[in-house]
């Protein structure tokens, strides 16, 4: 026999309880947004919009800013960079072994599409506390304008 028969035992009750909890919290078949990324995606990206700009926030901690390659072509933004998480340990420390390695190391590239209202010639990027902030202006004609209505 490959498994023990738990029917009518107390374990069956525990199993039932566990299944009920899993169902309650959507653990067996989680409901997620169709665009959501899996846990552990690196880097994660948020995009926001103000009346004049589209702002992209890329959470990319521990990267040498000179090694970030950021391009915008039409409305497609591509970010590629490399990070070596072992470099963060420092050279003064000799490390024999590890307990956990959860941080993503290596080369990465992500491509996202931005609204077509952006002006790819008007881009600013800065790196602050491990977040790459890309501010892209909107095309002049796309900016929300206040229209005066003449009253006759």
């Amino acid at each position: 026999m490959l498994w023990f028969d738990f029917a009518d035992s107390i374990w069956n009750e525990f199993d039932k309880m566990q299944r009920e909890i899993e169902e309650l919290f959507d653990l067996t078949a989680p409901l997620s947004n169709i665009r959501s990324v899996s846990r552990g995606t690196f880097p994660v990206i948020n995009v926001g919009e103000t009346p004049d700009n589209v702002i992209v926030y890329i959470l990319a901690p521990g990267i040498d800013p000179s090694k970030i390659d950021l391009t915008i072509e039409k409305n497609i933004l591509t970010i590629s960079a490399e990070r070596d998480t072992t470099k963060d340990i420092g050279e003064d420390v000799s490390i024999d072994g590890y307990h956990r390695r959860e941080r993503i190391s290596g080369k990465f590239k992500r491509i996202i599409s931005l609204p077509e209202t952006i002006d790819a010639n008007n881009v600013k990027a800065q790196y602050k506390n491990g977040i790459i902030i890309v501010t892209i202006g909107k095309k002049e004609e796309e900016k929300s304008k206040k229209i005066e209505v003449a009253i006759e």
């Binding site: 552990g40 990319a60 340990i89 420390v93 490390i95 024999d96 072994g97 959860e102 941080r103 491990g130």
Partner: peptide
């Protein structure tokens, strides 16, 4: 996410916390 290393002298913990000053 964290990395945790250990040798005879110390334990080193690295954590990704983008956006924190």
């Amino acid at each position: 996410p964290v990395d945790i290393y250990e040798d005879n002298e110390k334990i080193v913990l690295l954590a990704d916390m983008p956006g924190v000053s």
